[in-house]
């Protein structure tokens, strides 16, 4: 599990992005982190794998204290944390296969990676993952030839081939259309369930967060203002996170189906989504 205590980040400009965040994420929990732009969502997840250096506080992943690690140990702990990015962040000029295998860089030596001599077990796993997300026929395509949804699925494979204990997901759907967004979120949720992974998903779209996360944390100005189940997100709570607005179209109705049911009947699920798709544009 992940345990964050008193996490504080002050940027060099003097902006206090995080004001002492406390957050526990138990094993195999999918958690959504919502909040307005500039609330510090990206900073939180980047402080966990230290792409951004936290100013104060502690981050522990299964009893490894991350904030104190030196470079080699930090790299070792980064192997245990998969990350998925907003603009996919694939290396555009490398092939799909190379992008997926780059998730194994922490495990292979420099010359092995330079010469693309990855162990057969890694290659097997890469093909397995690509097959799982439906892209095994694309392995030799260059990443910049893929559509947005396909790229994000490659990004997911790259994160999963690390065999991580935790997934950090930064706005996975911000560059995708509503339907692809749902497919990607469903895929992330299913894969987390299959692998008993916990995940922190930064997401703008409140409705998507409610559909696919079992826990919602609301961040405002670097502070946690809500931490609870998706169905307790009332207009009052959303106002406390985002400020005053008419939330009636955003809140998921109690009559809406359970997101899990999407697994067994994809087509009716998608059809029932069409209303939400339209509404998603309003949020």
């Amino acid at each position: 599990m992940l345990r964050i205590k008193g996490l504080t980040k002050r940027y060099r400009t003097g902006d206090l992005a995080l004001k002492g965040i406390d957050l526990d994420v138990p094993d195999s929990q999918v958690m959504a982190l919502i909040g307005p732009s500039g609330a510090g969502k990206s900073t939180v997840i980047r402080c966990i794998n230290r792409l951004v250096e936290p100013t104060a506080g502690s981050v522990a992943l299964n009893d490894t204290e991350i904030t104190v690690l030196r470079s080699a140990d930090l790299r070792r702990v980064r192997r245990r944390i998969g990350m998925i990015f907003q603009e996919y962040a694939l290396v555009e000029r490398l092939t799909v296969m190379e992008n997926v295998l780059s998730g194994r860089l922490g495990y292979v030596g420099f010359w092995q990676s330079w010469l693309r001599r990855f162990p057969q077990s890694d290659i097997d796993e890469a093909f397995r993952l690509l097959e799982r997300v439906g892209l095994d026929h694309m392995a030799d395509k260059r990443a910049d030839e893929l559509s947005g949804g396909q790229r994000q699925r490659v990004g997911i494979c790259r994160a999963l081939i690390q065999n991580p204990e935790l997934l950090l997901v930064d706005e996975p759907t911000a560059s995708l259309d509503p339907k692809t967004s749902r497919q990607i979120m469903r895929l992330i949720k299913e894969l987390c369930a299959e692998r008993k992974l916990s995940a922190i998903i930064n997401i703008h779209d409140v409705m998507l967060a409610q559909m696919f996360a079992e826990r919602i944390v609301g961040l405002r100005l670097g502070e946690i203002v809500y931490d609870g189940p998706p169905n307790e997100l009332t207009p009052a709570v959303l106002t406390s996170i985002y400020g005053e607005e008419d939330w009636s179209a955003t809140i998921r109705k109690a009559a809406d189906e359970d997101p899990d049911s999407g697994k067994d009947s994809v087509v009716p699920f998608e059809r029932s989504l069409s209303d939400r798709d339209r509404l998603a544009g309003l949020t």
Partner: peptide, 18 residues
């Protein structure tokens, strides 16, 4: 793209190459 490669636990040299 650089950040994504770094996040996998790659070394500095690997980050350059990938």
């Amino acid at each position: 793209q650089v950040e994504a490669v770094r996040a996998t636990g790659a070394t500095g040299a690997q980050v350059s190459v990938y």
